[in-house]
Structures are given as C-alpha cells and as structure tokens.
Simulated assay, not measured.
Amino acid sequence: MGSDTVTSVREAMLARCSWSKVTDDAPTHDQLVALVAAAGRVADHAGLAPWRLIELRGGDRERLGAAFTEVLGHDGSADKPLRAPLLIAIVSSTTAHPKVPDWEQEAVAAGVGHALSLLLDEAGYGVIWRTGPFTRAEPVARLHGLGDNEKLLGWLYVGGKPDGAPVRRPVDAERCVTRLPD
C-alpha cells in the first residue's frame, strides 16, 4: 500500500493526478485482480459488465510498440509503451440491449478505468491514462484481439511513483456546475 493514507473518496479524488513518468515498480497480477474486483463495482445499468481489461507487461509492450510502428509506417512511437512496466488496456464490450445504449455501456467501461486508476494511486502507484489515434487503429485492435462489439478506450500506464508529485491543476467547479436555462 502507498505511504499516504487516504481517508475518504473525496480526498482520493482531490489527491489524484496523472504521473507521466513512473518507476519500474508495478503491482503483481494478483494485486491487480484484487483492485479490479473493487473497480468493477461502478454503476452498471442492467449489470451487463460491458468491459474488460488487458494486462500488458514485458514483451507485450514491445508488441504494442510494433503495432504503433505498423500504424505510422516508422518506428517513432515504438518505445511509447515502454514508458511504464504495466499497461492496462481498457476495452468497452457492448451488448445489444433495449434499455442500455452503447454510449452508456462505454461510460461504464470508462468508469471502471477511472476507478481503477484511483485504486492504483491509493496503492502507491503512479498512473496516467493515455489515448490517441492508436486506440482506433486496426493493427492495434488486432493485437488486442478486439471483437466487432469492442472499442479500445486507452491504456492505463502504471508504475511506481518517483520522488516529487506532478502539478495538480485546480478544477473551476463553479464554472462547471450550471442550472437549466430559462
């Protein structure tokens, strides 16, 4: 567990930040599974569990770099997946449902990703959620074994927290909370 003790969800949210640089420390598979069991408790209309996670370690990250190279036609991004010892691909897996549209199911998958990032942070790991054009590229989808009903929402890059926390940007909550127009 992390050295900082968080006593509330609010404190965890206020402490959350993205760690673009991390160390080689990472949770084990079993530690990750325990955190996923908690992250999977997000609100899920009809209990469809429209998500799955793909754990990438070691050579898997190199294979992802090769897929990035295939997309770009050069190796300029081949080392990007090597920036963290653990990458967790967040995949939405939608199911046709009369009351739960695809966008709502994708929101559940995103909620799991965010909850997992908070849990990883609490456990002492630095996390950043990386997205971009690679998430919709065919070679990357093929590498991840995505089905026709699946979309890659990005990767959590996970590693140890180096000394010194990243700058936390304040949220202008007053601007973000509005009322219905007259």
Rank of each mutant, 00 (worst) to 15 (best):
T7I: 13
S3I: 13
P166D: 12
V127E: 10
V9Q: 03
T28L: 04
V6N: 03
D163Q: 14
V6K: 09
A46V: 05
F68G: 04
L53E: 02
D182A: 14
W155P: 00
A96S: 14
K80N: 12
G113H: 01
E150M: 03
R142M: 03
R136Y: 10
P162G: 10
R52T: 13
A173I: 15
H45D: 10
T131S: 14
T69V: 02
A115W: 03
G73H: 07
P170C: 08
R83H: 13
T94I: 13
V6F: 14
P85V: 05
D4I: 15
P81Y: 03
E106T: 15
P85A: 06
L143A: 03
L32W: 00
A78P: 07
G164K: 13
G65F: 03
S8V: 11
G58Q: 09
D182E: 14
A78Y: 06
G159Q: 07
G111F: 02
F134D: 12
D182R: 13
A107N: 13
V91R: 00
L116P: 01
I128K: 06
G124H: 04
L119A: 09
A67R: 08
V71D: 11
F68T: 09
A67I: 05
L64R: 12
M13D: 10
F134Q: 15
A165H: 14
L87E: 08
E150Q: 06
P162H: 14
P27S: 02
N149A: 05
L48M: 10
T131W: 07
V91N: 01
L32M: 04
T69H: 09
P27R: 01
V112G: 03
A38G: 00
A89M: 07
D44E: 01
L116F: 02
N149S: 06
C17D: 12
D121N: 12
D102K: 12
A49E: 14
I54A: 11
D79Q: 12
Y125S: 07
L119Q: 04
W51R: 03
R136P: 00
G47I: 10
R52A: 10
D121P: 00
Q105K: 04
E150S: 01
M13L: 15
V36I: 15
D182M: 02
K151N: 04
V9G: 00
D4C: 09
T131M: 12
I88G: 04
G145Y: 07
F134L: 15
A37Q: 15
A37K: 14
R130G: 04
G47M: 05
A49W: 00
T5A: 15
R130A: 04
H97L: 01
V91E: 00
E62F: 02
V108N: 06
A123I: 05
G159I: 06
D24M: 10
H114E: 07
H97R: 08
A165W: 10
S77K: 14
H144Q: 06
R130E: 06
E106L: 11
R63W: 03
T69N: 08
G2S: 13
I90C: 06
H114Y: 14
V108P: 00
P27V: 01
V112K: 01
T95P: 00
P101A: 13
P139A: 06
